[in-house]
Design a protein around this nucleic acid. Structure first.
Lengths: 225, 225
DNA sequence: CCGCATCCGGGGCGATACTG
DNA sequence: CAGTATCGCCCCGGATGCGG
């Protein structure tokens, strides 16, 4: 995209991030390092030349870097730089703002990925003021399940399974997102989707989600006018 | 822009905000209600049909609304809805991320506006965890000066002047931004630009800026990987 | 198979002109 | 002042090809 040519931090930020697909590329790299094709799989409809071009631009901006993968893997990988990871708070803020747009569920023809739900989980549970309990949650059933690890205020989300998870949440991305964002109350969620685990672990999850919803409401942060 | 057709909160957010100029329109409306031409003045180079189209889209998304102005003014105005104001935390996060891109100063041909600096001031000083002191700061000299009012933890920024301001900061947008973002240390700033006011008021400002820089460092928020 | 580069319609964007 | 209309152009989307 052409630069806005404005001496304004927002405009300069958008000069880097504002191109179509750019933020979604960063989303893909936020959970794991990716091969070219892995990124492509997360961006249905992108033209291959565009992906290459975006990776060059983001690389030049110092947000993404390419490196030769270690021995077992036969290909190069892309990953976020530190500067790139510093973008996550901003993108998580967009996720929180957009969560009301998700209550209607997937539209006809919408693509779905478990890792996109993981990205949202990071947005809702992570960041400063995270919960101080310890809990591991396994979410999603079939393809691309995710694990949320809460350990003394530090929240990490990854793709994969954990056989020793304290709680298991089975349900569509729609239901998972509703539970995480708080658009779906915990009691409603327990009726609509299967949540298994010890009584205390389930209560812990309920506590974490409830606290997350009441702290740092966006309305309060907007302030006066 | 065409929808990404992804059931992902980030993608759905960008379906609303991702078009060229959209976020900059919201920036313009964040400080004051605007006439069509006022917005246009803040977006040098936008085609007028695009501005009209974006306003329609943002209006349809419930972010912006048009209303008939009260008597003395002879025209319609645009303003952010509540839903639109809830976007500010996300846009402020982008501003904070992009502030290192501003240290090089305005590039050749860059447009400048005092209100863009005001928007950045909001990003750096506002939000939760704001300072609990009381202080009014007048910034910028000639065209479009701004006033920052800090009153018991509530920060509000507006365009205009305040003859009773506690501190006055004279200097280019470049210098003002450096001071606000912390890329310029306060002691450097006092050498490079004129900061006038009572000794205690200047110390207060120094305290506010210093506290803002040390609290909520982005690095800590990114977390492990 | 992976990581692109190339080619080619179509539509979004930029610039200007025009109107109530 | 507040838009609408028009016209190139370039970016984007989709397909194909090709070297490693």
């Amino acid at each position: 995209m052409k630069s806005y040519h404005q001496y304004c931090a927002l405009a300069r930020g958008l000069d880097v991030l504002g191109d179509r697909w750019s933020m979604l590329i960063i989303r893909e790299l936020s959970l794991r390092d990716c091969r070219y094709t892995d990124i492509r799989d997360g961006l249905p409809g992108i033209a291959s030349n565009l992906l290459a071009e975006r990776l060059r631009e983001l690389s030049h901006a110092g947000v993404v870097e390419r490196y030769e993968s270690p021995k077992p893997i036969a290909s190069a990988l892309y990953r976020l730089t530190l500067r790139g990871r510093e973008l996550l708070p901003a993108m998580h803020a967009i996720v929180r703002w957009a969560s009301p747009l998700m209550v209607s569920g997937p539209a006809d023809g919408d693509h779905e990925r478990g890792r996109w739900t993981a990205f949202a989980a990071d947005a809702f549970l992570g960041g400063p003021g995270a919960d101080a309990t310890t809990l591991s949650v396994q979410m999603g059933d079939d393809e691309e399940p995710i694990v949320i690890d809460i350990a003394a205020g530090d929240v990490s989300v990854r793709i994969g399974t954990d056989d020793h998870a304290d709680v298991r949440v089975h349900g569509s991305n729609w239901m998972q997102l509703g539970l995480l964002s708080g658009e779906l109350s915990f009691s409603e969620a327990t009726r609509l989707i299967e949540i298994t685990g010890s009584r205390t672990a389930v209560r812990k999850l309920r506590g974490v989600l409830h606290r997350r919803r009441t702290v740092g409401s966006p309305i309060a942060a907007v302030g006066g006018r």
